[in-house]
Simulated assay, not measured.
Amino acid sequence: MSLIAFLGAIETGLLFGIVALGVFISFRVLDFPDLTVDGSLPMGAATSATLIVAGVNPFLSLLGAIIAGALAGLVTAWLNVRLGILHLLASILTMIALYSVNLRIMGKPNQALLGEETVFTPFEKLIDLPYYWVTPIVLFAVIVVLLILLNLFLSSETGLGMRATGVNGRMAAAQGINTGKMKLVGIALSNAMVALAGALFAQIQGGADITMGVGVIVVGLAAVILGEATFSTRTIILATIGCVIGSILYRVVVAVALNADFIGLQAQDLKLVTAVLVVLAMTLPGARQKWAKRKSVKGAGQ
């Protein structure tokens, strides 16, 4: 695998690390299975691309994408909290609706950004390195800032209330925590981060497309599970860092598998590789526990 391909895998891993952090909030912190991300990622991309083409500053377009993603998350949480619709079904309904919303935003199935300035343009002029180095460096800086802000939030009173809601909603409500509000805030925050990733994705690849969100939830879950399987999750800080590391590992493994000629995999095998990696990530922790238990039993027997 060439250096450019490797850095491309790191770049994509960092980008989907933001998605993994959003998925971590909904699935792990709130215990809320949210499929809205398949619609909020292209929504962030569509919003950012449309704003840039309209002459808006690329950095401000990111803010627009974040707000759009947060609104999408609020709709899902509102359907669940206020209307009593099952969380999984609520997120599916929102995801389906966002397909039409995204078409409305762009006015067409895709929006090109060729020749337009992006948030990476100033850094390409500032950092005296080839373009394939600049994007991963900028994304790494974004990830570090997001990790700091997210961990500060989850350590705050609101964040602790959100975590308590995910662990035991009834007990949290008995302690005076507004669990409905926690879900509204948490799902909005989750989809805001996913939409930010979509906006950055659009600016990196040079355009937004209506289908770019297909399978995002699987990639996000794969990153979270792989991070938990390979990295310590004893604290919330380590768990969030593990999400990013899991995303990078996932993309690197996929890139190695697709670039290894002796395996014979091609681009159309990406979904197959994804499914195999998710299965391995989900079974690895259990297999490791069984192996450790057998080892301890043998040690005790001797």
Rank of each mutant, 00 (worst) to 15 (best):
L152V: 05
Q203M: 01
V23N: 03
V254Y: 12
G246F: 07
I248F: 09
M182S: 00
L71V: 10
K290L: 13
V244Y: 02
V185N: 11
S247E: 07
A208F: 00
L114S: 15
Y131P: 09
V254D: 13
A68C: 01
F153C: 09
K295C: 08
D269A: 10
G180W: 00
D31N: 15
I18P: 01
L272K: 04
L88Q: 10
G159A: 03
G286N: 13
T50W: 02
I127M: 13
L265S: 02
M95F: 04
S247R: 01
I217E: 15
V101H: 04
I204W: 12
L15S: 03
T179L: 02
R251P: 05
A197E: 01
I210F: 05
D38T: 09
D34V: 08
G169W: 02
I10Y: 11
V142P: 00
G227K: 01
M182A: 03
A72N: 08
L74M: 14
E228F: 00
R234V: 14
L60C: 12
A46D: 08
G84H: 03
G264T: 04
A97S: 11
E157V: 11
L146A: 09
S2Q: 12
L86E: 15
L152T: 06
A188L: 02
G207D: 02
L83F: 14
L71E: 06
Q266T: 10
K271H: 13
L93Y: 02
V194Q: 03
P136N: 02
L14I: 11
L93R: 09
K293E: 15
F59C: 11
E116I: 06
N57T: 06
D31T: 14
P58R: 07
A141I: 13
G73V: 03
P136Q: 01
F59L: 15
F231K: 08
M1R: 07
P109F: 10
L71F: 05
A287H: 12
V29C: 05
A281F: 05
A188M: 04
L51C: 12
L226G: 09
V219K: 13
A72I: 00
L114Q: 14
M1F: 11
L154R: 09
V273S: 05
M182E: 06
L62E: 06
G207W: 00
L74Q: 12
G246P: 05
L7M: 14
E11Y: 04
L114T: 15
V224N: 12
T12P: 03
A257Q: 09
S61G: 15
T158E: 10
L265N: 03
V279Y: 10
I85E: 08
A202N: 05
L83G: 10
I18F: 01
Q205M: 14
P122N: 04
P130W: 00
M171W: 08
A5Q: 14
A9F: 03
K290C: 03
V23Q: 08
L147H: 03
D128V: 10
